[in-house]
């Protein structure tokens, strides 16, 4: 990740901890957000999409599953659409 993506990743982690109640110490850039990783589901993704839209003005409506894989992929998606 480049410098801009790292900054975005840090902000995304803050947002996820605040809005989804994830413990900060387990949320790394690489850990999968869904399934065996953090264990989020599609309902949590709605909150995540709303938080990202509000913070960065990036709409993730209709986006496939790939950008939601982990914080790194989210940061890369946001950085390329900001």
């Amino acid at each position: 990740m480049n410098e801009q993506e790292l900054k975005i990743a840090e902000k995304i982690k803050e947002l996820l901890c605040e809005s989804l109640g994830i413990e900060a110490d387990v949320l790394t850039n690489e850990i999968p957000l869904f399934g065996d990783g953090i264990g989020l589901d599609s309902i949590d993704s709605l909150e995540m999409i709303a938080a990202i839209d509000k913070e960065f003005g990036v709409s993730m409506t209709g986006v496939g599953k790939e950008p939601f894989y982990n914080v790194e992929s989210l940061a890369k998606y946001v950085a390329s659409h900001i």
Binding site: L46, I49, M60, T61, G62, V63, G64, K65, F68
Partner: peptide, 9 residues
Amino acid sequence: DSMSSEWIE
């Protein structure tokens, strides 16, 4: 079957 939030918008 997808994570699309289009419906909610």
